[in-house]
Each structure stands twice: as structure tokens, then as C-alpha cells.
Simulated assay, not measured.
Amino acid sequence: MSLEIVNLKKSYREPGGGSLPVINVPHFQLTEGEQVALVGRSGGGKTTLLNIISGITRPDSGAVIVGGVNITELSEPARDRFRAERIGIVFQTFHLLPAFSALENVLLGMAFAGKQSRAHAVELMERVGLKDRMHHRPMQLSVGEQQRVSVARALASRPRLVLADEPTASVDVANQKLILQLIRETCEEKKVTLMLVTHSEEVSSQFDRIEQLSNFNQIEVTA
């Protein structure tokens, strides 16, 4: 599924009443199945950009065209359905439901997309190295293990676009390689488009296409 961004702008209101520009992208494009590492410093607008692309946050202006659909023109319920069915997101802060086990969190993500398969969920949990931890609740897991659950959840619904926000930031070196390999191989096998945000040169160097946020975000971001 292709991704195209056109004249995208987003600002936030400051306490004093001023406007703080965060996103200003004239044009950006990914073809179906392409993988890109988006690199930028903390506070540089990377997470905001991913939230806009996924339809969680609405831009002030511009278009985000995902698979031929301009999601900025959709209603909030329609954006939610589109995201559940076609976009997988690895959140930086995980967003796991504390009352449910790791496996149940993955299954719930699949249920929202109408693609529930326990066998597929279990397979992904095994691939992220959590075969013996899948029935634990998030609070019983380490931060790194929670990150791996979030990766499995993002991939479980077989999305056409994956947005990964610092997916290796909370895990050790060995599991960084495991997570990155799982995300990239899964996307490559299914011709899924991938945008992965990172500040790690070690991670970004493994991608053929690397984009610096400052190169196409045409403002000096201060927060």
C-alpha cells in the first residue's frame, strides 16, 4: 500500500496563545512494499508525523493518501476503521491493556480489524521470543517484553502499512536485532510498506532508504 504526503502542516497552540509549527512537509512518497528509516532528534516531530499518517491526529492542512485514500477527508469513525484494517502501529509507549494477558492484547488488536486468528497470534508471540510469557499481564513483563508484545500486536492483523515509532528503544541489543528482523522480514514477505522512526544510526544503517526528518520537514522544530 503506497503512502503520499502533500503540503502537510500541523501546529500546536502554546500557553501564551502563540502557534508552534511542528510539521511542514511539502511532499513525501513511499511506494508499495518500500521500507524507510526516518531519522530525527527527540522532540523533532517524528511521533506527531506518525500520528497524522495513521489518522490519530488531524493535520491543520494538507493530504495523507494511503493506498489511494485521502484519510484526512475521512470522519473520525472512518479513520478508526481504516487504521484498524490496514495500518499496524508500534507505539513508543506500547498502549497495552493492563487487565489482559500479552496474548489477549494481540488478539484484541486483531479483533478490531476483524482478522482474529489465535494460531497466528501465538506464532507471532513465539517469534518475538515470548512463548513462555504470553499469558502474563503487562505489569508482569519487563519494558522490553512489553515492547515485543506491541510489535506482535502491530503485525498480527496483517496490515498493509506499518508505522513503527522507536520500536527498538526499550530492548537490549539481542532483542533489538530480533525485533528489527521480524518487522522487516514480515513486511518484505507480504509487500507491506514500512516507515520506521529511530534516532539510532545502528538501526537506520540497515535500511536502503534513510530520510532525515529535517530534510523534508521544512521548519526548525523546537519541541
Rank of each mutant, 00 (worst) to 15 (best):
M134F: 01
H135A: 00
H136S: 15
R137Q: 14
R137A: 03
P138K: 01
Q140G: 09
Q140K: 12
Q140Y: 00
Q140C: 00
L141P: 10
L141C: 07
L141W: 06
L141I: 02
L141A: 08
S142Q: 09
S142N: 13
G144S: 12
G144H: 05
G144F: 05
G144P: 07
E145T: 00
E145D: 11
E145N: 03
R148G: 07
V149W: 08
V149H: 07
V151R: 09
V151I: 15
V151D: 09
A152D: 12
A152H: 10
A152N: 08
R153H: 12
R153D: 13
A154P: 13
A154F: 10
L155E: 05
L155Y: 11
A156W: 03
A156F: 12
S157E: 00
S157D: 02
R158K: 15
R158T: 13
R158P: 00
P159S: 08
L161N: 01
L161T: 02
V162A: 01
L163E: 02
L163M: 11
A164E: 11
A164T: 12
A164D: 11
D165W: 13
D165E: 11
E166M: 07
E166P: 13
E166S: 10
P167S: 06
P167W: 13
T168H: 02
T168D: 07
T168N: 03
T168E: 11
A169R: 08
A169G: 15
S170E: 14
S170K: 15
V171L: 07
